[in-house]
Design a protein around this nucleic acid. Structure first.
Lengths: 338, 338
DNA sequence: AGCCATCGTCGAAGCGCTTCGACGAGTGAT
DNA sequence: ATCACTCGTCGAAGCGCTTCGACGATGGCT
């Protein structure tokens, strides 16, 4: 492996000049620059990352802390990760992948040993223990999610409350008055993942504002979970004409159940799903849905981290506006039936 | 951030002694060790990763190159990644996540700049362009997959040929004589992902050996793809009594189709799936399946990398034996019907 | 008693890069 | 012609760690 000294000799300049060519931090004449670049190319020189980190106090690496359980929301996690890696690369950074399992200790390990310049975390809980730890780090962090006490920490997420409102006002606009919410699984609530709460409160508020009769229920995974969730919803409110489904995993079994029980979508019951676009379109009925913009959120998280790193101003809380796409799972209720 | 010098002063020893306490490479008296450790704890000292990498020529980081497209096999990718990260941590290593999109350039970048000690790649193609590049790196690499020319490079994977044989001989053992293969999507074949080929040739060989009538077809994703795949299979061979499905995405639509066309599983048609356990059990009919042991493969890949790193011997090609788990999607054909 | 190993510790030399201050050579204004 | 800059380059210091050789102190042998 050639070093910067080898390059310097080959180009007939000093090592510092090579460094300045690389970084552009000082003016270098066109001729010198060309010679240096030629030498770099010829020798196949790549600066040693460790040496660089040591001398410059920057690693050009960001940590991504992901929940690598298999249980939850795998495709969404994957989309976040993809977006983060891609965006990071576009800023000439790499991504160190940590599991949420390592908890606070993992964050401190990579931060204290100066392996990363910044951290991006996903799957935050309401009172996430990692937050106080994050505050103590010298590296900035960006959260994908919105825990309760996030003062001074950058947060990026879909505006789930607005998403719930959007879903309801869309349905209300089509004449629906009796609407059920198929929520995430109880374990998501138990884990206090905040998007569940935010969606739920948005849902409840909007249902008051719009004067709707609504009923909500978490939904265990699997066919049995869906069956009992639907049974509960139906028991608590009859004449339900629409469902809002905030539970990717249950979408499929739910459609199966409705089919099996002879409730046609959208003729007998309308559905608005909250899920990634491709999940909505992979169903036998193309679902009208509110997208979870994982790509945008991931990209924005990286962008925010970069701004933080070079001291530019940021908005500490960025909740992306939901967008609803109409497909084939909703129908208008004619005024006579309202 | 305290440095090793601060620790040395606090403990009243030289920096090198601290280093030896940390690394254990030279004997240190119990008393000294205790004082040093106390100083480390008190100051909250964490060695600077860059400095370490520079001085020791080791980063304790391995690269994981994953296909971060959304299109293929997301849960399996995720399981590999999880296993790799977890295993790496157990060897005190971290994981740098790269996308396959970066191609050869990405590998060279992280390798030449000494960001990683070893590389693990997944989703290899038959004549993967990255292999020659890998050979030129000073860091060792481990492949999850089995490209055609892999001499001198460690490979780990499920033995897909054996998996196909296992599936067929299981079905043959239950009296099935006419069997269809629902293969991966054409794009997987086009990409020359080798597991598809290996499974297919295992399938064809075994069908000859066992004297079966078989027919095979790739399967486009989605309901339409499944429909046309089944139509082709039925057209080319009538009286099919069993299907082997080597296509996770199609499992669900396939079951729907069979249901819709009145073919009951397993009464009218038996199914053996090749997919992760949890996919097999998430279906309305619990599927008899051959597991894709992503966790084992990922762990083994890391283990192999570690052996390579400390110069221990390895087996260059490790194909894990398939294991078939019986569930509810197969039935025995009575001799009179054969 | 004398010798050789071994043990435990230290000092110093790097590892490869960035960055700061310095300095000669141009440039424009006076 | 002179001064004051700016431009382009260099040299050296230093980032925080590992590791090699050296060396005094012990201890087990003969």
């Amino acid at each position: 492996m050639p070093t910067i000294n080898d390059v310097a000799k080959a180009a007939g300049v000093s090592p510092s000049t090579v460094s300045y060519v690389l970084s552009g931090r000082r003016p270098i004449s066109a001729g010198t620059r060309a010679r240096v670049q030629a030498a770099i190319a010829e020798l196949g020189f790549h600066p040693h990352a460790g040496a660089r980190a040591l001398a410059s106090a920057k690693t050009n690496v960001i940590a991504l802390v992901a929940p690598l359980r298999v249980d939850v929301n795998v495709p969404v996690i994957m989309q976040f990760a993809t977006a983060v890696v891609t965006a990071a690369r576009s800023y000439n950074h790499d991504v160190l992948l940590l599991t949420k399992d390592e908890g606070t200790a993992g964050l401190e390990r990579v931060a204290h040993s100066t392996m990363v310049d910044a951290l991006i975390l996903m799957d935050l809980e309401r009172d996430d223990l990692r937050i106080p730890a994050l505050r103590r780090l010298k590296q900035p962090s960006v959260l994908i999610g919105l825990p309760s006490d996030h003062t001074g920490i950058a947060c990026v997420d879909l505006d789930f409350a607005a998403a719930a409102r959007t879903a309801l006002s869309y349905l209300a606009g089509s004449g629906h008055r009796r609407i059920g919410l198929v929520g995430p699984s109880p374990s998501v609530y138990k884990r206090q993942t905040t998007y569940a709460d935010r969606f739920l409160s948005g849902f409840l508020e909007a249902s008051v504002d719009l004067g709707l009769r609504t009923v909500t229920h978490p939904c265990e995974p699997g066919a049995e979970g869906v069956r009992s969730c639907m049974a509960d919803l139906d028991a608590e409110l009859d004449g339900i004409t629409a469902l809002v489904v905030h539970n990717e995993e249950s979408l499929r079994p739910l459609l199966d159940l409705l089919h099996a029980t002879g409730r046609r979508v959208p003729e007998d019951i309308s559905i608005v799903a909250v899920c990634p676009r491709d999940v909505a379109t992979a169903m036998p009925v193309q679902l009208t849905s509110i997208d979870i913009p994982a790509h945008d959120v991931g990209t924005l998280a990286v962008e925010t981290a970069m701004r933080l790193l070079d001291g530019r101003s940021i908005e500490y809380t960025r909740l992306l506006a939901p967008s609803l796409v109409e497909r084939d799972s909703c129908r208008e209720i004619s005024p006579s039936h309202r």
